[in-house]
Design a protein around this nucleic acid. Structure first.
Lengths: 252, 252
DNA sequence: CCTTGTGAATGCGTTCACAGCA
DNA sequence: TGCTGTGAACGCATTCACAAGG
Protein backbone atom coordinates (compact mmCIF):
# COMPACT_ATOMS: atom_id res chain seq x y z
CA UNK A 1 0.00 0.00 0.00
CA UNK A 2 1.20 3.41 -0.79
CA UNK A 3 0.41 4.98 2.44
CA UNK A 4 0.51 2.32 5.02
CA UNK A 5 3.63 3.80 6.37
CA UNK A 6 4.47 2.34 9.70
CA UNK A 7 6.31 5.25 11.00
CA UNK A 8 6.16 5.95 14.63
CA UNK A 9 7.00 9.59 14.51
CA UNK A 10 7.84 11.78 17.39
CA UNK A 11 4.37 13.04 18.14
CA UNK A 12 1.98 10.76 19.99
CA UNK A 13 0.75 8.98 16.97
CA UNK A 14 -2.83 9.52 16.06
CA UNK A 15 -2.50 6.00 14.61
CA UNK A 16 -5.68 5.09 12.86
CA UNK A 17 -5.17 1.78 11.03
CA UNK A 18 -5.25 2.03 7.27
CA UNK A 19 -8.02 -0.54 7.03
CA UNK A 20 -10.13 1.61 9.31
CA UNK A 21 -9.47 4.75 7.30
CA UNK A 22 -10.67 2.95 4.19
CA UNK A 23 -13.98 2.22 5.87
CA UNK A 24 -14.65 5.65 7.30
CA UNK A 25 -16.09 6.97 4.02
CA UNK A 26 -18.46 4.01 4.01
CA UNK A 27 -19.70 4.82 7.49
CA UNK A 28 -19.97 8.44 6.56
CA UNK A 29 -22.15 7.67 3.59
CA UNK A 30 -24.48 5.51 5.65
CA UNK A 31 -24.64 8.16 8.36
CA UNK A 32 -25.39 10.89 5.85
CA UNK A 33 -28.33 8.87 4.58
CA UNK A 34 -29.62 8.48 8.14
CA UNK A 35 -29.10 12.15 8.77
CA UNK A 36 -31.19 13.04 5.75
CA UNK A 37 -33.96 10.90 7.15
CA UNK A 38 -33.54 12.77 10.43
CA UNK A 39 -32.69 9.65 12.37
CA UNK A 40 -31.22 10.92 15.64
CA UNK A 41 -29.26 7.91 16.89
CA UNK A 42 -28.13 4.58 15.56
CA UNK A 43 -26.70 1.41 17.11
CA UNK A 44 -23.52 -0.23 15.94
CA UNK A 45 -25.61 -3.12 14.72
CA UNK A 46 -27.85 -0.99 12.52
CA UNK A 47 -25.11 1.20 11.17
CA UNK A 48 -22.93 -1.79 10.46
CA UNK A 49 -25.70 -3.37 8.44
CA UNK A 50 -26.15 -0.18 6.44
CA UNK A 51 -22.44 0.03 5.75
CA UNK A 52 -22.08 -3.63 4.94
CA UNK A 53 -19.68 -4.61 7.70
CA UNK A 54 -20.11 -6.41 10.98
CA UNK A 55 -20.78 -4.55 14.17
CA UNK A 56 -17.67 -5.63 16.05
CA UNK A 57 -15.50 -4.23 13.31
CA UNK A 58 -17.42 -1.00 13.29
CA UNK A 59 -17.12 -0.53 17.02
CA UNK A 60 -13.44 -1.27 16.91
CA UNK A 61 -13.03 1.23 14.10
CA UNK A 62 -14.84 3.92 16.03
CA UNK A 63 -12.82 3.18 19.11
CA UNK A 64 -9.76 4.49 17.26
CA UNK A 65 -11.46 7.82 16.81
CA UNK A 66 -12.52 8.16 20.41
CA UNK A 67 -15.53 7.29 22.55
CA UNK A 68 -18.30 8.87 20.60
CA UNK A 69 -21.11 6.49 21.53
CA UNK A 70 -23.40 6.10 24.50
CA UNK A 71 -23.63 2.67 26.09
CA UNK A 72 -27.10 1.27 26.03
CA UNK A 73 -28.13 3.77 23.39
CA UNK A 74 -25.88 4.01 20.37
CA UNK A 75 -24.29 6.81 18.40
CA UNK A 76 -25.60 10.30 17.77
CA UNK A 77 -25.85 10.53 13.99
CA UNK A 78 -25.08 14.21 13.53
CA UNK A 79 -22.20 14.15 15.93
CA UNK A 80 -20.65 11.15 14.25
CA UNK A 81 -21.05 12.67 10.82
CA UNK A 82 -19.12 15.65 12.04
CA UNK A 83 -16.39 13.68 13.75
CA UNK A 84 -15.76 11.41 10.80
CA UNK A 85 -15.84 14.30 8.36
CA UNK A 86 -13.30 16.11 10.41
CA UNK A 87 -11.13 13.03 10.74
CA UNK A 88 -11.16 12.54 6.99
CA UNK A 89 -10.33 16.16 6.39
CA UNK A 90 -13.61 16.89 4.64
CA UNK A 91 -14.33 20.01 6.60
CA UNK A 92 -11.92 21.74 4.32
CA UNK A 93 -12.05 22.27 0.60
CA UNK A 94 -9.84 20.16 -1.65
CA UNK A 95 -9.18 21.50 -5.12
CA UNK A 96 -8.57 18.66 -7.56
CA UNK A 97 -7.29 18.59 -11.12
CA UNK A 98 -8.20 15.94 -13.65
CA UNK A 99 -5.62 15.25 -16.31
CA UNK A 100 -6.71 13.46 -19.46
CA UNK A 101 -10.16 14.48 -20.64
CA UNK A 102 -11.13 11.52 -22.77
CA UNK A 103 -14.25 9.48 -22.20
CA UNK A 104 -13.26 8.61 -18.68
CA UNK A 105 -11.93 12.01 -17.72
CA UNK A 106 -15.12 13.63 -18.95
CA UNK A 107 -17.19 11.14 -17.00
CA UNK A 108 -15.21 11.92 -13.88
CA UNK A 109 -15.63 15.65 -14.43
CA UNK A 110 -19.36 15.13 -14.65
CA UNK A 111 -19.50 12.90 -11.62
CA UNK A 112 -21.64 14.56 -9.00
CA UNK A 113 -20.20 12.80 -5.98
CA UNK A 114 -17.26 15.11 -6.29
CA UNK A 115 -18.63 18.34 -4.99
CA UNK A 116 -20.87 16.61 -2.49
CA UNK A 117 -17.92 16.18 -0.16
CA UNK A 118 -15.32 18.87 0.01
CA UNK A 119 -13.84 18.13 -3.40
CA UNK A 120 -13.88 20.73 -6.11
CA UNK A 121 -12.72 20.29 -9.67
CA UNK A 122 -10.28 23.16 -10.00
CA UNK A 123 -9.24 22.38 -13.55
CA UNK A 124 -9.40 19.95 -16.44
CA UNK A 125 -6.19 19.39 -18.35
CA UNK A 126 -5.61 17.66 -21.66
CA UNK A 127 -2.70 17.31 -24.06
CA UNK A 128 -4.86 17.81 -27.14
CA UNK A 129 -4.62 21.47 -28.21
CA UNK A 130 -7.92 21.03 -30.01
CA UNK A 131 -9.68 20.56 -26.72
CA UNK A 132 -8.33 23.69 -25.12
CA UNK A 133 -11.10 26.06 -24.22
CA UNK A 134 -13.87 23.57 -24.81
CA UNK A 135 -16.03 23.27 -21.73
CA UNK A 136 -16.59 19.86 -20.16
CA UNK A 137 -19.05 19.73 -17.32
CA UNK A 138 -19.04 23.48 -17.46
CA UNK A 139 -15.30 23.76 -16.96
CA UNK A 140 -13.04 24.83 -19.82
CA UNK A 141 -10.30 22.36 -20.65
CA UNK A 142 -6.78 23.72 -20.40
CA UNK A 143 -3.69 22.59 -22.18
CA UNK A 144 -1.00 20.51 -20.52
CA UNK A 145 1.45 23.36 -20.90
CA UNK A 146 -0.43 25.16 -18.16
CA UNK A 147 -0.21 22.25 -15.75
CA UNK A 148 2.40 23.61 -13.38
CA UNK A 149 0.84 27.04 -13.28
CA UNK A 150 -2.61 25.63 -12.58
CA UNK A 151 -1.36 23.46 -9.73
CA UNK A 152 0.46 26.30 -8.10
CA UNK A 153 -2.15 29.00 -8.61
CA UNK A 154 -4.87 26.84 -7.13
CA UNK A 155 -2.83 25.18 -4.42
CA UNK A 156 -3.80 21.78 -5.72
CA UNK A 157 -2.49 18.80 -3.79
CA UNK A 158 -4.68 16.05 -5.25
CA UNK A 159 -4.48 15.03 -8.89
CA UNK A 160 -6.51 12.54 -10.89
CA UNK A 161 -4.82 10.86 -13.84
CA UNK A 162 -7.15 9.63 -16.58
CA UNK A 163 -4.72 9.64 -19.47
CA UNK A 164 -3.71 6.70 -21.62
CA UNK A 165 -1.20 4.40 -19.94
CA UNK A 166 1.69 5.71 -22.00
CA UNK A 167 1.35 9.25 -20.73
CA UNK A 168 0.60 8.50 -17.11
CA UNK A 169 4.09 8.38 -15.63
CA UNK A 170 5.12 11.57 -17.34
CA UNK A 171 2.00 13.38 -16.16
CA UNK A 172 2.55 11.98 -12.71
CA UNK A 173 6.11 13.30 -12.61
CA UNK A 174 4.96 16.74 -13.60
CA UNK A 175 2.16 16.76 -11.07
CA UNK A 176 4.52 15.75 -8.31
CA UNK A 177 7.16 18.24 -9.34
CA UNK A 178 4.52 20.95 -9.26
CA UNK A 179 3.53 20.07 -5.73
CA UNK A 180 0.83 17.40 -5.89
CA UNK A 181 1.21 14.85 -3.11
CA UNK A 182 -1.82 12.61 -3.64
CA UNK A 183 -2.70 10.91 -6.89
CA UNK A 184 -5.66 8.89 -7.98
CA UNK A 185 -4.59 6.87 -10.98
CA UNK A 186 -7.02 5.45 -13.52
CA UNK A 187 -4.37 4.58 -16.06
CA UNK A 188 -3.39 0.93 -16.18
CA UNK A 189 0.23 1.47 -15.14
CA UNK A 190 2.32 1.27 -12.03
CA UNK A 191 3.31 4.79 -11.10
CA UNK A 192 6.64 5.51 -9.51
CA UNK A 193 6.54 8.32 -7.02
CA UNK A 194 8.91 9.63 -4.39
CA UNK A 195 8.33 9.00 -0.72
CA UNK A 196 5.68 11.20 0.75
CA UNK A 197 3.41 10.97 -2.26
CA UNK A 198 0.34 8.74 -1.99
CA UNK A 199 -0.99 6.90 -4.97
CA UNK A 200 -4.23 5.01 -5.16
CA UNK A 201 -5.26 3.24 -8.29
CA UNK A 202 -8.51 2.26 -9.89
CA UNK A 203 -8.24 -0.33 -12.57
CA UNK A 204 -11.26 -1.77 -14.30
CA UNK A 205 -9.33 -4.49 -16.02
CA UNK A 206 -7.81 -5.75 -12.79
CA UNK A 207 -11.17 -5.84 -11.06
CA UNK A 208 -12.65 -7.88 -13.87
CA UNK A 209 -9.76 -10.30 -13.80
CA UNK A 210 -10.24 -10.87 -10.10
CA UNK A 211 -13.91 -11.55 -10.68
CA UNK A 212 -13.05 -13.92 -13.50
CA UNK A 213 -10.79 -15.87 -11.20
CA UNK A 214 -13.59 -16.50 -8.73
CA UNK A 215 -16.09 -17.05 -11.49
CA UNK A 216 -13.92 -19.74 -13.00
CA UNK A 217 -13.55 -21.38 -9.68
CA UNK A 218 -17.30 -21.42 -9.14
CA UNK A 219 -17.72 -23.21 -12.44
CA UNK A 220 -15.13 -25.75 -11.39
CA UNK A 221 -16.94 -26.33 -8.14
CA UNK A 222 -20.24 -26.86 -9.81
CA UNK A 223 -18.74 -29.47 -12.03
CA UNK A 224 -16.99 -31.06 -9.10
CA UNK A 225 -20.16 -31.13 -7.06
CA UNK A 226 -22.05 -32.70 -9.89
CA UNK A 227 -19.41 -35.30 -10.44
CA UNK A 228 -18.90 -35.95 -6.78
CA UNK A 229 -21.97 -38.03 -6.08
CA UNK A 230 -22.78 -39.80 -9.33
CA UNK A 231 -19.35 -40.92 -10.30
CA UNK A 232 -17.70 -43.07 -7.73
CA UNK A 233 -14.33 -42.89 -9.37
CA UNK A 234 -12.67 -40.23 -7.30
CA UNK A 235 -9.46 -39.92 -9.17
CA UNK A 236 -6.82 -37.49 -8.19
CA UNK A 237 -6.82 -36.40 -11.79
CA UNK A 238 -8.62 -33.14 -11.41
CA UNK A 239 -6.05 -31.18 -9.57
CA UNK A 240 -8.52 -28.35 -9.72
CA UNK A 241 -9.06 -28.33 -6.00
CA UNK A 242 -12.72 -27.96 -5.15
CA UNK A 243 -12.13 -26.05 -1.99
CA UNK A 244 -15.20 -23.96 -1.63
CA UNK A 245 -13.95 -20.83 -0.10
CA UNK A 246 -15.06 -17.95 -2.19
CA UNK A 247 -13.85 -14.98 -0.30
CA UNK A 248 -15.99 -12.02 0.35
CA UNK A 249 -14.85 -9.47 -2.05
CA UNK A 250 -17.16 -7.11 -0.36
CA UNK A 251 -19.22 -6.75 2.71
CA UNK A 252 -22.79 -6.86 1.57
CA UNK B 1 -21.67 -10.78 5.58
CA UNK B 2 -21.93 -11.88 2.04
CA UNK B 3 -19.27 -14.44 1.71
CA UNK B 4 -16.54 -14.50 4.27
CA UNK B 5 -16.46 -18.24 4.30
CA UNK B 6 -14.09 -19.69 6.78
CA UNK B 7 -14.84 -23.30 6.30
CA UNK B 8 -12.09 -25.77 5.83
CA UNK B 9 -13.94 -28.19 3.60
CA UNK B 10 -13.12 -31.74 2.80
CA UNK B 11 -10.66 -31.55 -0.02
CA UNK B 12 -7.21 -30.14 0.36
CA UNK B 13 -7.55 -26.57 -0.52
CA UNK B 14 -6.16 -25.22 -3.74
CA UNK B 15 -6.22 -22.07 -1.68
CA UNK B 16 -4.62 -19.17 -3.44
CA UNK B 17 -4.79 -16.28 -0.96
CA UNK B 18 -7.06 -13.47 -2.00
CA UNK B 19 -4.23 -10.95 -1.70
CA UNK B 20 -2.24 -13.00 -4.17
CA UNK B 21 -5.13 -13.26 -6.61
CA UNK B 22 -5.44 -9.49 -6.56
CA UNK B 23 -1.82 -9.15 -7.62
CA UNK B 24 -1.84 -11.70 -10.41
CA UNK B 25 -3.29 -9.23 -12.94
CA UNK B 26 -0.48 -6.88 -12.05
CA UNK B 27 2.15 -9.49 -12.73
CA UNK B 28 0.37 -10.46 -15.89
CA UNK B 29 0.46 -6.93 -17.18
CA UNK B 30 4.16 -6.57 -16.49
CA UNK B 31 4.85 -9.93 -18.09
CA UNK B 32 2.82 -9.03 -21.16
CA UNK B 33 4.92 -5.92 -21.60
CA UNK B 34 8.09 -8.00 -21.36
CA UNK B 35 6.67 -10.50 -23.77
CA UNK B 36 6.01 -7.78 -26.32
CA UNK B 37 9.62 -6.76 -26.04
CA UNK B 38 10.56 -10.39 -26.61
CA UNK B 39 12.31 -10.70 -23.28
CA UNK B 40 12.70 -14.44 -22.74
CA UNK B 41 13.25 -14.68 -18.98
CA UNK B 42 12.96 -12.44 -15.97
CA UNK B 43 14.12 -12.64 -12.37
CA UNK B 44 11.82 -12.15 -9.42
CA UNK B 45 13.68 -8.97 -8.66
CA UNK B 46 13.14 -7.43 -12.09
CA UNK B 47 9.56 -8.51 -12.41
CA UNK B 48 8.76 -7.31 -8.93
CA UNK B 49 10.14 -3.89 -9.75
CA UNK B 50 8.02 -3.74 -12.88
CA UNK B 51 4.91 -4.71 -10.97
CA UNK B 52 5.61 -2.40 -8.06
CA UNK B 53 5.94 -5.01 -5.34
CA UNK B 54 8.91 -6.52 -3.55
CA UNK B 55 10.53 -9.68 -4.77
CA UNK B 56 9.87 -11.81 -1.72
CA UNK B 57 6.17 -11.21 -2.05
CA UNK B 58 6.25 -12.03 -5.71
CA UNK B 59 8.08 -15.30 -5.16
CA UNK B 60 5.69 -16.26 -2.41
CA UNK B 61 2.76 -15.43 -4.66
CA UNK B 62 4.12 -17.59 -7.46
CA UNK B 63 4.81 -20.40 -5.07
CA UNK B 64 1.06 -20.75 -4.61
CA UNK B 65 0.67 -21.41 -8.31
CA UNK B 66 3.43 -23.99 -8.49
CA UNK B 67 7.14 -24.07 -9.20
CA UNK B 68 7.31 -22.27 -12.48
CA UNK B 69 10.77 -20.75 -12.13
CA UNK B 70 14.30 -22.01 -12.61
CA UNK B 71 16.75 -21.54 -9.76
CA UNK B 72 19.72 -19.49 -10.72
CA UNK B 73 17.92 -18.20 -13.80
CA UNK B 74 14.45 -16.80 -13.24
CA UNK B 75 11.08 -17.24 -14.86
CA UNK B 76 10.25 -17.96 -18.47
CA UNK B 77 8.12 -15.03 -19.55
CA UNK B 78 5.86 -16.78 -22.04
CA UNK B 79 5.29 -19.73 -19.80
CA UNK B 80 4.36 -17.53 -16.86
CA UNK B 81 2.00 -15.46 -18.99
CA UNK B 82 0.23 -18.63 -19.90
CA UNK B 83 0.08 -20.04 -16.39
CA UNK B 84 -1.23 -16.85 -14.85
CA UNK B 85 -3.75 -16.34 -17.62
CA UNK B 86 -5.03 -19.84 -17.08
CA UNK B 87 -5.17 -19.40 -13.33
CA UNK B 88 -7.17 -16.21 -13.73
CA UNK B 89 -9.52 -17.85 -16.17
CA UNK B 90 -8.52 -15.58 -19.02
CA UNK B 91 -8.06 -18.38 -21.51
CA UNK B 92 -11.79 -18.36 -21.87
CA UNK B 93 -14.10 -15.67 -23.10
CA UNK B 94 -16.19 -13.72 -20.58
CA UNK B 95 -19.23 -11.94 -21.91
CA UNK B 96 -20.00 -8.89 -19.82
CA UNK B 97 -23.00 -6.57 -19.69
CA UNK B 98 -22.84 -2.96 -18.66
CA UNK B 99 -25.97 -1.53 -17.10
CA UNK B 100 -26.39 2.22 -16.98
CA UNK B 101 -25.06 3.98 -20.06
CA UNK B 102 -24.49 7.47 -18.75
CA UNK B 103 -21.16 9.23 -18.89
CA UNK B 104 -19.41 6.55 -16.96
CA UNK B 105 -21.12 3.60 -18.62
CA UNK B 106 -20.23 5.00 -22.02
CA UNK B 107 -16.64 5.52 -20.93
CA UNK B 108 -16.48 1.92 -19.76
CA UNK B 109 -17.96 0.70 -23.01
CA UNK B 110 -15.28 2.57 -24.88
CA UNK B 111 -12.51 1.35 -22.64
CA UNK B 112 -10.08 -0.66 -24.69
CA UNK B 113 -8.63 -2.72 -21.88
CA UNK B 114 -11.77 -4.77 -21.97
CA UNK B 115 -11.28 -6.84 -25.05
CA UNK B 116 -7.56 -7.08 -24.54
CA UNK B 117 -8.05 -9.84 -22.01
CA UNK B 118 -10.85 -12.31 -22.49
CA UNK B 119 -13.62 -9.84 -21.71
CA UNK B 120 -16.21 -9.00 -24.31
CA UNK B 121 -18.97 -6.43 -23.96
CA UNK B 122 -22.00 -8.54 -24.82
CA UNK B 123 -24.55 -5.80 -24.29
CA UNK B 124 -25.21 -2.29 -23.05
CA UNK B 125 -28.38 -1.76 -21.07
CA UNK B 126 -30.10 1.43 -20.02
CA UNK B 127 -33.43 2.35 -18.50
CA UNK B 128 -33.95 5.35 -20.76
CA UNK B 129 -36.17 4.29 -23.68
CA UNK B 130 -34.76 7.21 -25.64
CA UNK B 131 -31.38 5.54 -25.70
CA UNK B 132 -32.59 2.22 -27.04
CA UNK B 133 -31.02 1.45 -30.37
CA UNK B 134 -28.45 4.20 -30.16
CA UNK B 135 -24.98 2.81 -30.61
CA UNK B 136 -22.34 3.47 -27.99
CA UNK B 137 -18.85 2.27 -28.78
CA UNK B 138 -20.41 0.52 -31.74
CA UNK B 139 -22.85 -1.45 -29.64
CA UNK B 140 -26.56 -0.64 -29.68
CA UNK B 141 -28.02 0.17 -26.29
CA UNK B 142 -30.87 -2.07 -25.22
CA UNK B 143 -33.67 -1.33 -22.81
CA UNK B 144 -33.76 -2.64 -19.27
CA UNK B 145 -36.81 -4.70 -20.11
CA UNK B 146 -34.57 -6.99 -22.09
CA UNK B 147 -32.14 -7.52 -19.24
CA UNK B 148 -33.11 -11.04 -18.28
CA UNK B 149 -33.28 -12.21 -21.86
CA UNK B 150 -29.88 -10.73 -22.68
CA UNK B 151 -28.23 -12.36 -19.68
CA UNK B 152 -29.65 -15.73 -20.51
CA UNK B 153 -29.16 -15.65 -24.26
CA UNK B 154 -25.52 -14.68 -23.90
CA UNK B 155 -24.70 -16.76 -20.87
CA UNK B 156 -23.46 -13.70 -19.05
CA UNK B 157 -22.08 -14.26 -15.57
CA UNK B 158 -20.35 -10.93 -15.02
CA UNK B 159 -22.26 -7.67 -14.80
CA UNK B 160 -21.06 -4.09 -14.47
CA UNK B 161 -23.35 -1.61 -12.73
CA UNK B 162 -22.86 2.02 -13.70
CA UNK B 163 -26.30 3.33 -12.82
CA UNK B 164 -27.15 6.05 -10.34
CA UNK B 165 -27.03 4.89 -6.74
CA UNK B 166 -30.79 4.74 -6.44
CA UNK B 167 -31.18 2.15 -9.15
CA UNK B 168 -28.19 -0.02 -8.31
CA UNK B 169 -29.71 -2.47 -5.85
CA UNK B 170 -32.69 -3.10 -8.06
CA UNK B 171 -30.51 -3.70 -11.08
CA UNK B 172 -28.29 -5.91 -8.99
CA UNK B 173 -31.24 -8.03 -7.89
CA UNK B 174 -32.37 -8.51 -11.44
CA UNK B 175 -28.89 -9.39 -12.63
CA UNK B 176 -28.52 -11.96 -9.90
CA UNK B 177 -31.96 -13.40 -10.49
CA UNK B 178 -31.10 -13.77 -14.15
CA UNK B 179 -27.95 -15.70 -13.37
CA UNK B 180 -25.14 -13.21 -12.92
CA UNK B 181 -22.76 -14.28 -10.16
CA UNK B 182 -20.07 -11.59 -10.33
CA UNK B 183 -20.73 -7.88 -10.16
CA UNK B 184 -18.50 -4.89 -10.55
CA UNK B 185 -20.27 -1.97 -8.92
CA UNK B 186 -19.52 1.64 -9.78
CA UNK B 187 -22.55 3.03 -8.00
CA UNK B 188 -21.90 4.53 -4.59
CA UNK B 189 -24.03 2.06 -2.68
CA UNK B 190 -23.57 -1.09 -0.67
CA UNK B 191 -25.09 -3.93 -2.63
CA UNK B 192 -26.78 -6.82 -0.89
CA UNK B 193 -26.30 -10.10 -2.67
CA UNK B 194 -26.90 -13.71 -1.77
CA UNK B 195 -24.06 -16.05 -0.91
CA UNK B 196 -22.15 -17.23 -3.90
CA UNK B 197 -22.28 -13.89 -5.66
CA UNK B 198 -19.11 -11.81 -5.67
CA UNK B 199 -19.22 -8.06 -5.64
CA UNK B 200 -16.32 -5.72 -6.15
CA UNK B 201 -16.76 -2.03 -5.96
CA UNK B 202 -15.06 0.96 -7.45
CA UNK B 203 -15.85 4.23 -5.78
CA UNK B 204 -14.20 7.44 -6.82
CA UNK B 205 -15.52 9.37 -3.89
CA UNK B 206 -14.18 6.91 -1.36
CA UNK B 207 -10.75 6.92 -2.94
CA UNK B 208 -10.61 10.68 -2.80
CA UNK B 209 -11.64 10.69 0.81
CA UNK B 210 -8.89 8.28 1.70
CA UNK B 211 -6.40 10.50 -0.07
CA UNK B 212 -7.77 13.53 1.73
CA UNK B 213 -7.23 11.82 5.06
CA UNK B 214 -3.56 11.30 4.38
CA UNK B 215 -3.23 14.68 2.77
CA UNK B 216 -4.59 16.32 5.87
CA UNK B 217 -2.25 14.36 8.01
CA UNK B 218 0.73 15.43 5.94
CA UNK B 219 -0.24 19.05 6.44
CA UNK B 220 -0.56 18.44 10.16
CA UNK B 221 2.83 16.79 10.32
CA UNK B 222 4.46 19.60 8.45
CA UNK B 223 3.08 22.07 10.92
CA UNK B 224 4.07 19.88 13.82
CA UNK B 225 7.55 19.41 12.45
CA UNK B 226 7.92 23.10 11.96
CA UNK B 227 6.76 23.83 15.47
CA UNK B 228 8.76 21.01 16.99
CA UNK B 229 12.10 22.16 15.72
CA UNK B 230 11.98 25.93 15.75
CA UNK B 231 15.06 26.56 13.77
CA UNK B 232 17.90 24.29 12.85
CA UNK B 233 18.25 20.55 12.91
CA UNK B 234 16.85 19.18 9.74
CA UNK B 235 17.03 15.56 10.62
CA UNK B 236 17.76 12.69 8.36
CA UNK B 237 14.81 12.76 6.04
CA UNK B 238 11.29 12.09 7.06
CA UNK B 239 10.70 8.68 8.57
CA UNK B 240 9.06 6.87 5.71
CA UNK B 241 9.43 3.19 5.27
CA UNK B 242 11.90 1.85 2.77
CA UNK B 243 9.52 0.37 0.31
CA UNK B 244 8.18 2.53 -2.43
CA UNK B 245 5.24 0.49 -3.44
CA UNK B 246 1.96 1.36 -4.95
CA UNK B 247 -1.34 0.45 -3.42
CA UNK B 248 -4.35 -1.32 -4.58
CA UNK B 249 -7.98 -0.65 -4.29
CA UNK B 250 -8.91 -4.14 -3.45
CA UNK B 251 -11.72 -5.61 -1.52
CA UNK B 252 -13.22 -3.42 1.12
C1' DC C 1 -31.30 -4.56 30.61
C1' DC C 2 -29.17 -2.46 26.83
C1' DT C 3 -25.20 -1.37 23.74
C1' DT C 4 -20.57 0.40 23.74
C1' DG C 5 -15.65 -0.19 24.21
C1' DT C 6 -11.80 -3.23 24.43
C1' DG C 7 -8.38 -6.92 25.98
C1' DA C 8 -7.38 -11.45 24.19
C1' DA C 9 -7.48 -14.88 20.67
C1' DT C 10 -7.24 -15.92 16.07
C1' DG C 11 -6.24 -15.63 11.27
C1' DC C 12 -4.10 -13.60 7.27
C1' DG C 13 -0.49 -11.40 4.76
C1' DT C 14 4.22 -9.81 4.55
C1' DT C 15 8.90 -10.13 5.35
C1' DC C 16 13.06 -12.50 6.61
C1' DA C 17 16.57 -15.52 5.88
C1' DC C 18 18.35 -19.47 4.19
C1' DA C 19 18.07 -24.23 2.29
C1' DG C 20 17.75 -26.31 -2.21
C1' DC C 21 18.82 -26.68 -6.75
C1' DA C 22 20.00 -25.44 -11.68
C1' DT D 1 27.48 -19.04 -7.97
C1' DG D 2 22.87 -17.05 -8.28
C1' DC D 3 18.15 -17.15 -7.88
C1' DT D 4 14.11 -19.70 -6.61
C1' DG D 5 11.11 -21.69 -3.18
C1' DT D 6 9.68 -21.83 1.54
C1' DG D 7 9.58 -22.50 6.79
C1' DA D 8 9.46 -19.38 10.46
C1' DA D 9 8.89 -14.88 12.54
C1' DC D 10 6.44 -10.94 12.64
C1' DG D 11 2.79 -7.50 12.35
C1' DC D 12 -1.68 -6.04 11.12
C1' DA D 13 -6.69 -6.83 10.85
C1' DT D 14 -10.69 -9.26 12.30
C1' DT D 15 -13.37 -11.60 15.47
C1' DC D 16 -14.65 -13.05 20.01
C1' DA D 17 -16.48 -12.45 24.31
C1' DC D 18 -17.17 -9.89 28.18
C1' DA D 19 -16.47 -6.01 31.44
C1' DA D 20 -17.96 -1.22 31.82
C1' DG D 21 -21.35 1.88 32.18
C1' DG D 22 -25.46 4.64 30.58
Amino acid sequence: MATGRTHRPATRSRGIPEATVARLPLYLRALTALSERSVPTVSSEELAAAAGVNSAKLRKDFSYLGSYGTRGVGYDVEYLVYQISRELGLTQDWPVVIVGIGNLGAALANYGGFASRGFRVAALIDADPGMAGKPVAGIPVQHTDELEKIIQDNGVSIGVIATPAGAAQQVCDRLVAAGVTSILNFAPTVLNVPDGVDVRKVDLSIELQILAFHEQRKAGEEAAAEAAVPAAARKASTDQGPDGDVPAVMPA
